[in-house]
Amino acid sequence: MKIQINGRWYEAREGEMVLDVLRREGIDVPALCAHEAVEPYGACRLCMVEITHEDWGGWKGNVTSCLYPVEDKLIVQTHTEDIIELRKTVLNLLLARCPNSPEIQKLASEYGIDTTSFVPREDADNCIMCGLCTRVCTQMGFNAISVAGRGYGREIATPLKEAPPDCVGCLACVKICPTHHIQYEDIGTTREIWGRQFELVKCKQCGKALITREFADYLIENRDIPADYFDICDDCKRSGTARDFKKLVHWEEKEEAEEEVSA
């Protein structure tokens, strides 16, 4: 199937969302809450595009491209005046929510907004409530964190605001957070995140601490990974392989040298 984006035709696959095509083709549409690891959610409202179709009798609509499935001959416009105005409003609001976030500031300034026209949130953190962290946590199978409350007081929280019993310290939430709001700290062989402390597994060769015991155990048990896989870190495994290769190469060089001598 083909869809038209900004006047050009592109190949699209059944079941894809419009945003998937936009991203594949490198068409610049901002989106903060969409990530290939999780289902689309439509929280940030930045990926809004205008859609129409020759069979729709002139009807046009503004939709979130992350949640709109492609259909044959769909006509998409990514930067109409209305769409740009919508994105500006969203960025203006995001900037009021997270005035200190470098990511939001940068995106807003790309749309010509340097300061929000709304009242900035007091004691603002950098969470835009996109839900990527809770969604990836569910996707990983842990469900350690979730959205609590509603309305103005809505927030990402651990159950009962206590150290989360289901967390394994995998850092998926940290890595997926588009505004780098979620923090963690590794001190020596201890990792602290969400108010909980984890002991890190040390590499038996170099002593570097890389993964929590809980996460390693989970992967060994559920993802068909050998029980001794986390005993040695990736770097040490690589240098081990390199050493083996070196031996092999040396052996060949020695043989060649012997041949030269005998010749």
Binding site: N143, V147, A148, T158, P164
Partner: peptide, 18 residues
């Protein structure tokens, strides 16, 4: 039901109080 989900529901509805 995961603890986090129960907490989510419990804090969402005003009929529930913690």
């Amino acid at each position: 039901v995961p603890l986090s989900q129960v907490y989510s529901v419990a804090t969402f509805y005003s009929a529930f109080s913690l």
